[in-house]
């Protein structure tokens, strides 16, 4: 059993909602997960499943109103971050320093009218007591370590002078410069080309491992997480529906949604002419949803118990730290016996 002390981050029963004119949108609905030190964890799900809002809630960057963190705990290094307000001194010193975040589109995360050097120096000097000169040296080293050639000259470049892959590297450099403990990468390679994507992912994971950082990869692409993640959490409609090691999730999916996701992906190895098995229907609208399993309308295995019971809790299923939120055993198509 893993030791609780190894947890760098533990999120417990997090709930975040958006209060819109159409009603309450339960974007994150009782989500719990943890990240060990030095571990790469992936949060996988389709758009609107709450995977990004979960990360924004950890950083307390949820726009309020309409968003509101309704409850739960975000324990980072033994302290509950939610006890600090979003604008508190403590939270500001953690954001960008202890916990760094990388976004899908680096161009919107970088300031278009500041040079890369100035942006890095700003971040470094916000969190470290160093002179501008010293900060520039740290910035140059950081750029160098993320594989940007001719780092010194690049410090005077503006973001528009860099390619997409370079910009994403510069974002990673800010995390390196501050020696963050946890890096949250929200769809870090979705906007990049396949060959650049492979480069950036290799770099990201390499840096994380070398520096003993932890990494949360948020993505919709199961392929990206296959190679790099130690553990996977699958999210659907604001809930974590399955959790396990990468091998468990990809080889032996237990939740009908995970199984459906894997069957929907076109595979390179397959013979030509094989049919894809899509998940029918569309993801649910999260406005005022009832507290039952949200996957029921699209599920092949749905039974009476699913329809008549509340949302199944995320419970231990089998050996090896595997958790599942489903009443049905998809291998036997019978209601599982949880004892």
């Amino acid at each position: 059993m893993e030791n609780k002390k190894d947890y760098l981050l533990e999120v417990k029963h997090l709930r975040t909602s958006f209060f819109t004119t159409n009603g309450e949108v339960k974007a994150v609905n009782d989500v719990s997960f943890h990240v060990n030190r030095g571990e790469v964890v992936a949060i996988v799900g389709e758009s609107g499943c709450g995977k990004s809002v979960t990360q924004m809630s950890i950083m307390q960057l949820v726009q309020s109103p309409p968003g509101k963190i309704l409850g739960g705990e975000v324990i980072f290094n033994g302290k509950n971050l939610l006890e600090y307000g979003p604008n508190s001194k403590e939270m500001r010193s953690i954001r960008g320093d202890k916990i760094a975040m990388i976004f899908q589109e680096p161009m919107t995360a970088l300031d278009p009218v500041m040079t890369i050097g100035d942006q890095l120096v700003e971040v470094i000097r916000t969190h470290r007591k160093v002179s501008r000169k010293e900060a520039l040296v740290i910035a140059e080293k950081a750029l160098d370590s993320v594989g940007i050639p001719d780092a010194k000259a690049r410090l005077t470049n503006y973001p528009f002078e860099m390619s997409g892959g370079m910009r994403q590297r510069a974002m990673i450099a800010t995390a390196v410069a501050c020696e963050s403990e946890l890096l949250i990468a929200d769809e870090p390679t979705t906007a990049l080309d396949v060959t650049t994507q492979a480069q950036v992912m290799e770099l990201l994971v390499d840096i994380v491992h070398k520096r003993g950082m932890s990494l949360i990869i948020v993505t919709h692409n199961l392929g990206v997480v296959n190679r790099y993640a130690d553990r996977i959490y699958v999210m659907y409609a604001g809930h974590v529906v399955e959790q396990g090691t990468t091998e468990q999730i990809l080889k032996y999916p237990h939740h009908p949604y995970t199984e459906g996701l894997l069957a929907s992906v076109p595979k390179l190895e397959e013979e030509v002419g094989e049919k894809l098995v899509p998940i029918p229907g569309t993801p649910p609208n999260l406005t005022d949803i009832p507290d039952i399993c949200p996957f029921i309308p699209r599920c092949r295995y749905v039974c009476d118990k699913c329809r008549n019971s509340a949302m199944p809790p995320l419970e231990k299923a089998g050996e090896g730290g595997r958790y599942l939120a489903c009443y049905v055993d998809i291998n036997t198509n019978e209601v599982r016996d949880n004892g």
């Binding site: 396949v194 392929g223 990468t246 595979k267 190895e269």
Partner: peptide, 9 residues
């Protein structure tokens, strides 16, 4: 470079 979902391959 294309990531695949097959764990072993």
């Amino acid at each position: 470079a294309v990531p695949t979902v097959d764990y072993d391959s």
